[in-house]
C-alpha cells in the first residue's frame, strides 16, 4: 500500500509532538523513498546510496524543527535530500546543477510499469549507438540527469555533451522517421 503525502504529514505532525511510533513509521517509509531517489541518481555509486540515505535521515531528525507545519512534508524531505546529493557531488569535486523537479511527484513510488515499458523501447533503440553515447543519452533522457551531471559522469565538457546528445538524437530520429525526423534545420 502506498502512503500518501497527507498520511506522511500526519505521521510527521505526530512525531513532532513526540509520538515515537509515528516517527518510526515515517522514517521507515522515507527511507525507501530516499533509497529510490538516490539510487536513480547514483547508479554507479551504489555504496554511497545507503550513506546518503542515512545522512538525510539524520538531517531530517536534527533539523525537524525547520519543518513548517502548515506546509506539505514531501517537498521539505525532497529539498533536504537534494541538498545532501549536491553536497555529495561537491565533496567529489564536481560542479553540478541538480534541477528542481516537481517536488511532490519526486518522492512518490507510483506504478512504474509504463515507465518500464518506455525504458525497454528506448533501450532497444539505443542499441545501435556507441556505448559512450548510449550511456550519455540514458543519463540525460531516462535518468533525467542535468547536462552538468551527465558531463561529469562521462568526463566530457558540457558543450561536448550537448553536441553529442543532439547528434545522437538526430541519428535516432532519422532512423525512426526515415530521414524526416529533423525539423530544426
Amino acid at each position: 500500500m502506498e502512503t500518501t503525502e497527507g498520511e506522511l504529514k500526519l505521521l510527521m505532525l505526530a512525531a513532532l509532538d513526540g509520538d515515537a511510533g509515528a516517527y518510526r513509521a515515517l522514517l521507515g517509509d522515507l527511507r525507501l523513498r530516499l533509497s529510490g531517489y538516490f539510487g536513480r541518481r547514483l547508479r554507479r555509486d551504489a555504496d554511497d546510496v545507503e550513506d546518503l540515505v542515512q545522512d538525510t535521515l539524520i538531517a531530517i531528525h536534527t533539523r525537524r524543527e525547520t519543518f513548517d507545519r502548515t506546509q506539505a512534508l514531501t517537498p521539505w524531505v525532497y529539498a533536504i535530500a537534494r541538498y545532501k546529493l549536491i553536497d555529495h557531488y561537491r565533496r567529489r569535486g564536481r560542479r553540478v546543477h541538480v534541477p528542481l523537479e516537481d517536488a511532490a511527484g519526486e518522492l512518490t513510488v507510483e506504478d512504474r510499469s509504463a515507465a518500464v515499458d518506455a525504458r525497454r523501447d528506448v533501450e532497444k533503440a539505443l542499441a545501435g549507438l556507441p556505448e559512450r553515447i548510449r550511456r550519455l543519452l540514458r543519463d540525460l533522457k531516462i535518468d533525467e540527469l542535468s547536462v552538468a551531471e551527465a558531463a561529469a559522469r562521462a568526463g566530457m565538457s558540457e558543450g561536448a555533451v550537448k553536441v553529442a546528445s543532439h547528434r545522437a538524437l538526430r541519428t535516432l530520429m532519422d532512423r525512426f522517421a526515415g530521414g524526416r525526423g529533423g525539423n530544426d534545420r
Binding site: 513526540g18 522514517l27 521507515g28 527511507r31 545507503e50 540515505v53 539524520i58
Partner: peptide
C-alpha cells in the same frame, strides 16, 4: 545499519513545538 539508525533516531525523539525557528 539503517535499521539501527532509525532505532537510534526514534529513541532520541523529543517533542518540538511550533515557532522554534522564529
Amino acid at each position: 545499519m539503517t535499521d539501527d539508525l532509525i532505532d537510534r533516531l526514534t529513541r532520541d525523539l523529543r517533542p518540538v513545538g511550533p515557532g522554534v525557528v522564529a
